[in-house]
Amino acid sequence: MSTEAPESPAPAAPEPPVRPRRRRARPLMASVVALAVLLFAAVGGIGWYFAGVAIEVDHSAEYPLSIVDAADGTVTLPREPETERPGEWALVWKDGRALLGPIVGGDEDRVVRKVSSVVSGSLVKGAPAAIDHWMYDGDPERALGLPFESITYPSQVGPMPAWLVPGSTLHGTWVIAVHGRNADKAETLRAMRSVHEMGLPMLSIAYRNDVGAPSSGDRKNHLGDTEWHDVISAMGYARAHGATGVVLYGWSMGGAMAMTALRKDPSFVRGIVLDSPVLDWSATLDKQGDARNLPGFMTDVAKRVLEWRIGIDLTDYDQRRYAPRLRRPVLLYTARDDETVANGPAYTFARKAPPGMVTHISTLGGHTESWNVDPAAYERALKAFLKRVS
C-alpha cells in the first residue's frame, strides 16, 4: 500500500471580480415617465384652455379696423373681405353706429362706402371700428320703430328678460327668437320686421348668463345643454299668454337650443327656423380646433375635458341622428363661408330628414350673415315659411 499522500488539486484560477451592473434602466424609465407626465400635462393644459374658450361667457367688443376717413356722407375703411362685401352692414365703434350703403370708390388698399345713416355718435377719422352684421342695436322701437313690451318670463335661474313685439293678436302662433352664444337679443332684430308684417307676436328672449339676465351657478356657457331649459320656460310664458303654438327661431347656438327644445316638447312647436345653426358640436369644435392649428388628438382631449367640465354629452347634440324622425317643418339657412360653425352636419341633416320637411337655403356670406347678403330673398323665404306653419 502506498504511503504517498495524494497530490492536492491545483488551485482553481481566480474568478474575475463581479462588477455591479450600471443601473441604466431606472434612470431611462424615470425619464420616459417624466416626459410622459410633461406631455400629458401639456396636452391636458391645452385641452383645458381650449375647452375654457368654448364655455367662456364673454360679452366684450372688439374693434379690429380703423376709420381711414369720413366725409361727405361716406366712410373710408381698410380694404378687407368684410369691408368690401355687398349687402347690408353696419359700422360700429365704441360710442356709435352707422348703417352702410354701397361701395362708391376706393383703391387696392382702401374701400369707400356710402353712409346710409349715422344712428348714434360721430364718425371720426382714426377711430377703432368693426363691421357689424347684426345691423341694428337698442330695442325694437329705437332700431325699427316697432312697438314692444319689455317682459320677464320665469326660468329655473330667476326672472329672465325678453322683448315681446305684439302681432295682430296674441291668440295663435308666436315666434320665439333665440340668439347665439355670447350674443344678445339685438341679434334677432333683423328678422323682427318680417315677423311683425306677418301679424305674429315675436318673443325675443335673453337666457342665462346674458347681460342683464340671471347667471348660471358656474357662470359658464353650457353650449345649450342647460340653456334649452330657458327656451322651454319661454314657451310656457307664451302658452300662458295666448299662444296656441310656437315657431322656434334660433341663430347659431340658439339653433342647437331650439332643436333640443323641439325634442323635449314637440307638441307645442309648429315649426323651426335655423340660421347658421350648430347641428353637431363635435364637428364645430373640430373646425375651430383646425382654425387654431390644433392637432386632432388635442382637440379630442379638449372635447373630453369640456364634457367633463360642464357635464355635456356631445353626441346628444349631433342632430343628424334625429333627422329621420323629424315631424315639424324646418327652414334652414346656411352661409357658405361660415368660419365659426361646421356646415356639413346641416347639409346631412337636410338630406336625412323626411322629404319636404326641411327647406334648405344656402347663401353667400359668413356666420349668421344670410340676411345681410340678400335681405329681400331672406325675408321672402321667411314669410313663406311662417305663412305655411302659423
Rank of each mutant, 00 (worst) to 15 (best):
A243H: 08
P78H: 01
N343G: 09
S252H: 01
G126A: 05
R190C: 11
A25R: 13
H196R: 08
E15D: 12
G145C: 12
V118M: 01
G344P: 05
R219Q: 07
P64I: 03
S66G: 00
D265K: 06
S66Y: 00
F297A: 05
R304L: 14
G180M: 14
H241L: 10
A162L: 09
G138W: 00
I312H: 08
L99W: 15
P11Q: 14
T226K: 12
A302W: 12
P277Y: 00
R24S: 02
P166H: 06
V175M: 11
H59I: 10
A191G: 10
G271D: 00
P16D: 01
G271I: 09
Y322I: 08
A350E: 13
V37T: 04
W134L: 11
T173F: 11
K125Y: 12
A71R: 06
D275A: 12
T340A: 14
K125C: 03
N209S: 07
A377C: 09
M257N: 06
A98M: 08
H222T: 13
V119Q: 14
M235N: 06
P214K: 01
E307K: 15
P78E: 01
M1Q: 10
P147S: 03
A213K: 00
V57Y: 03
D313N: 15
R380T: 10
P266V: 01
S370H: 03
E7A: 14
R351H: 07
S282F: 07
S8F: 12
D109F: 06
W89N: 05
T340C: 11
A302M: 09
G224S: 10
F148P: 03
A54P: 09
L326F: 07
R321F: 11
K264F: 10
V119C: 12
Y322L: 14
N182H: 05
S276P: 11
G289E: 02
E187K: 15
P11N: 09
G311W: 04
A51G: 15
G296M: 07
G212P: 04
F40K: 04
L100C: 01
E141S: 07
P166M: 00
S267M: 09
L382Y: 13
W163L: 00
A54W: 13
G121Q: 03
D316G: 05
P11E: 06
E7D: 10
E307Q: 15
R270Y: 13
R208K: 04
S31W: 11
K287P: 04
P201G: 00
P27V: 13
M160F: 01
M257T: 01
G271V: 13
V32W: 14
E84A: 05
L28R: 12
L223M: 06
P277E: 01
T152W: 02
N372F: 03
D225R: 07
T152G: 12
F148S: 06
R190A: 11
R336A: 13
R26G: 02
A346W: 15
L65K: 04
D107I: 06
A256Q: 01
R19W: 10
P277I: 02
R292L: 07
G245V: 08
H360G: 12
P345M: 03
E88G: 07
G296P: 04
T74E: 03
